[in-house]
Design a protein around this nucleic acid. Structure first.
Length: 827
RNA sequence: GCGAGAGUGGCGGAACUGGUAGACGCACUGGACUUAGGAUCCAGCCCACUCCGGUGGAUGGGGGUUCAACUCCCCCCUCUCGCACCA
């Protein structure tokens, strides 16, 4: 026996990382002759250092990348930096530098950290979104979208975050607060640029059904966010002239409308109340509602309240006069900002009617019938048959929806209409550290795009941010002043920058050809590599980033640059890393620093534990003792392999046919493990069970051979087993396996090795244990060769002594035989 | 309230299309080796009872289907996440 060598993870990891890097081991090129696999993990924001969430995300990705490579696929596995963003500005102010300095320092540091983890990226494709060579294409997209009217400018009430000094998109407002700094947002009137994502609402929604590789949870969130509703718009004539347009999904209930509700901000509010004596009450109510909405916690619904405007509308079908109320639950931004109130068939209207003593009129009777206004305790919003609805009485509600909408159309006061909850994407940010919006303003010619030849509009490097946190661009003459491309006169540049979600909406496509200089994408590259086969990241991006990326993919497709409809074929959302029951955070003091762990145990141990402790989509509870256990396992394997080096090296590769029992058992275990690990990794991502089956193999190996080797098993089988362990483990703990692979006499690195094939014959059990049950309870066990004839097994079971005790004297009613599993005797 | 997911030993988690519940690991207990052990190795480890052969119970709770249920159906409870007056 050779003396074992210590597991010197630090030296091993350094050695292999250097080799991989120097040898560009993971560089890929498009090769139409090979099947591709594009594996992508969400790129990080260069905040300073990586955290355990990154470690977990990227470890999962790396295992898949390495596994697919071993399976012979041409794997694209890139990494880059989501490098624009507010923290860089804050840091620049604090340290008196340029945001770029902080950003690139962080990138350099974090890149080292990732390399220390041994992730197999093609670093030649690295990109940073703050680089003009990247965002210049984004500016081009903007201009092309502007030409196609997919970008427009409008003045709107926006969500303003006073702390960040910027506008936020609806999606970036969480519980009424800024998603980044948690401060309450305030409304503010501003002119901003919008992407017309609503033009794609229908396609974005419809294609959710075809994203079969996405978690249902994420698709549900996206569908809800898009929020399609089919209904009708109907004009109600206002008593003093004009019309009030409403949107409803229940045109079938229009005969049951007893009043109207409009949003406090609705433009007609003033006109409706004028001269009725209600002006003041209405104004006061509007103000009160505004304040309340701001103050209210998002999870409380609040009492439904309203005030009579003094005005009336006429139901275009019945001619009835309906009072118009301003109501706090009607949203100006949805539909038309006004609704017809049908208390009998809408819960909100019902509550409102009861509160203000307004009439309730039943127009849809449920199948069971018997609905009467006086007896109702809540609205009935299900289907039924129409009553008291003029010519439509007797119709089923679904049919009536169509008929009433059609009738409204014919008579010129209504039309079928589909609305979405999804709003256009406001992308203007009053920030410095973002991609400049390539537009300019000329006094004579108006708003003009920057000519393509003048791109990129580069963010100046010679600025100093001041304490206020405001963007320096509006006051920077050298940036702001420009000439109009149309008239040649003086013009002013747009000084807003783009939302950083824009950069992350197309980076995955740029990775296919990051060096392309004459176009955003090389056609052959995107044709070959897209779509991403597997995308991996946190579920916190389930709406924002993923929806925007889908939108951008469709836009870039329609602009002729991309060949796909959807960016990500399969999506894996990994769970959070938690400690002591809650998410790691500085404030809770439960943060685990990857650096310390790598220092202490090595990257392989950290990788192994984060894969073993939980299935990827579930939260992972960090356990120091668990890490210790992972380390112990590696040490054990290391000790075993190094102690048996001579034997393994000297063995033949071919396993002899005439093995003894021990040899056959180990040989079988090897092939079973190969099968199991392959199954677990391939598409299922069950890393935890994959590891446990390798552990079982190692347990079998050490219990048969012991640390001190010797002649208890033929060397060829020992060699096969050791190699299997290294091959199977290599996607997960790559440095460790490379080193032992080399030590066991392989000249070619493991990173070039193929995934082992398993021999079904060898993996087959020689004996299976068949359980003997009596009335469903396990009473005995018998051992038989697999696939033994059912009658034979039945016979043996009936003869089983232990089982016999439980069926004494009772007649056997029925015997169920499940092949290779059990026999159940019913007495 | 609506939607999605989840509830299995002290803990993280296994269990294929209904077929031996608790793989693998952690923690714990006993032993071996030892100057020492927080290293390593061996053994034990769901609960209760036990004549140490076993017997009974157990996958959030309650019902049901079935020869057989963690798995399927119905009702209920708890937790996590998302949405939340969207007409």
């Amino acid at each position: 026996m050779a003396p074992e060598t210590r597991y010197d993870f630090a030296a091993i990891e350094k050695k292999w990382q250097e080799r991989w890097l120097a040898g560009k081991s993971f560089k890929v090129t498009a090769d139409p002759g090979k099947k591709k696999y594009y594996l992508l993990e969400m790129f990080p924001y260069p905040s300073g250092r990586i955290h355990m969430g990154h470690v977990r995300n990227y470890t999962i990705g790396d295992v898949v990348a390495r596994f697919k490579r071993m399976k012979g696929l041409n794997v694209l596995h890139p990494m880059g930096w989501d490098a624009f963003g507010l923290p860089a500005e804050n840091a620049a102010i604090k340290n008196n530098t340029h945001p770029a300095v902080w950003t690139y320092d962080n990138i350099a540091y974090m890149k080292k950290q990732l390399q220390r983890m041994g992730f197999s990226y093609d670093w030649d494709r690295e990109l940073a979104t703050c680089d003009p060579s990247y965002y210049r294409w984004e500016q081009l997209f903007f201009i092309r979208m502007y030409e196609k009217e997919l970008v427009y400018q409008k003045k709107t009430t926006v969500n303003w975050c006073g702390t960040c000094q910027t506008v936020l998109a609806n999606e970036q407002v969480i519980d009424g607060a800024c998603w980044r700094c948690d401060n309450l947002v305030t409304p503010r009137e501003m002119n901003g640029w919008f992407f017309k994502i609503t033009d794609y609402a229908e396609e974005l929604l419809a294609e959710c059904d075809r994203l079969t590789g996405w978690p249902e949870k994420v698709l549900t969130m996206q569908r809800n966010w898009i929020g399609k509703s089919v209904g009708a718009e109907i004009d109600f004539p206002v008593a003093g002239g004009g019309t009030l347009r409403i949107f409803t999904t229940r045109p079938d209930t229009i005969f049951g409308a007893t009043f109207m509700s409009i949003a406090p901000e609705h433009p007609l509010v003033a006109a409706l109340s004028r001269g009725t004596g209600q002006e003041q009450a209405v104004a006061e109510f509007a103000e009160k509602t505004r304040l309340e909405r701001q103050r209210r916690k998002p999870d409380e619904e609040g009492e439904k309240e309203g005030v009579f405007t003094g005005g009336f509308c006429r139901n275009p079908f019945t001619g009835e006069e309906l009072p118009v109320y301003v109501a706090n639950f009607v949203l100006v931004e949805y539909g038309t900002g006004a609704v017809m109130a049908v208390p009998a068939h809408d819960q909100r209207d019902f509550e409102f009617a009861r509160k203000y003593g307004l009439p309730v009129k039943v127009v849809v009777q449920p199948p069971a019938g018997g609905l009467s206004p006086a007896a109702m305790e809540k609205a009935y919003d299900g289907p039924g048959v129409l009553v008291d609805s003029g010519p439509f009485s007797g119709m089923a509600s679904e049919e009536a929806k169509k008929a009433i909408t059609a009738a409204a159309g014919q008579q010129g006061f209504g039309t079928a209409r589909t609305t979405y909850r999804l709003r256009d994407w406001g992308i203007s940010r009053q920030r410095f550290w973002g991609a400049p919006i390539p537009m300019l303003y000329c006094e004579r010619c108006g708003v003009q795009p920057v000519p393509e030849a003048d791109l990129p509009v580069v963010l100046p490097t010679d600025v100093q941010l001041d304490q206020s946190g405001k963007s320096p661009l509006p006051n920077l003459e050298s940036f702001r002043k420009t000439t109009c491309p149309v008239c040649g006169g003086e013009a002013r540049r747009e000084t807003d920058t783009m939302d950083t979600f824009v950069e992350s909406s197309w980076y995955f496509a740029r990775y296919t050809c990051p060096d392309c200089t004459d176009a955003p994408f090389s056609r052959p590259a995107v044709d070959y590599w897209l779509p991403v086969d597997q995308y991996i990241g946190g579920v916190e991006h389930a709406i924002l980033h993923l929806l925007y990326s889908r939108f951008f993919t469709k836009v870039l497709r329609d602009l002729g640059w991309l060949p796909v409809d959807e960016p990500f074929r399969n999506l894996l959302t990994q769970g959070m890393v938690i400690k002591d029951g809650s998410k790691m955070s500085k404030s809770k003091g439960n943060v685990v620093d990857p650096n310390e762990l790598v220092e202490r145990y090595g990257a392989d141990t950290v990788r192994l534990f984060s894969l073993f402790a939980a299935p990827p989509e579930r939260d992972l509870e960090w356990s120091d003792q668990g890490v210790e256990g992972a380390y112990r396992f590696l040490t054990r394997v290391h000790r075993f392999v190094t102690a048996n080096l001579e034997l393994v090296r000297g063995a033949t590769a071919a396993v002899p046919a005439d093995l003894d029992d021990t040899g056959r058992a180990l040989h079988r275990k090897v092939h079973q493990a190969i099968r199991k690990v392959g199954d677990d990794l391939d598409g299922k991502f069950h890393f935890n069970t994959a590891i446990s089956s390798v552990m079982e193999l190692v347990n079998a190996l050490t219990s048969i051979v012991g640390d001190s080797a010797g002649g208890r098993v033929v060397p060829a089988v020992l060699r096969e087993a050791v190699e299997a362990v290294l091959l199977l483990l290599s996607p997960m703990v790559p440095h460790f396996c490379e080193e032992l692979w080399e030590l066991t006499g392989h000249a070619e690195p493991l990173s070039q090795a193929a995934w082992p094939a398993y021999d079904p014959e060898a993996a087959r059990e020689e004996e299976v244990t068949v359980v003997v049950q009596v009335n469903g309870k396990v009473r005995g066990r018998i051992s038989v060769p697999p696939d033994t004839d059912e009658d034979r097994v039945k016979e043996m079971a009936l003869a089983d002594e232990k089982a016999a005790k439980f069926m004494e004297g009772k007649p056997v009613r029925k015997v169920i035989v499940v092949k290779n599993k059990l026999v159940n005797i019913v007495v």
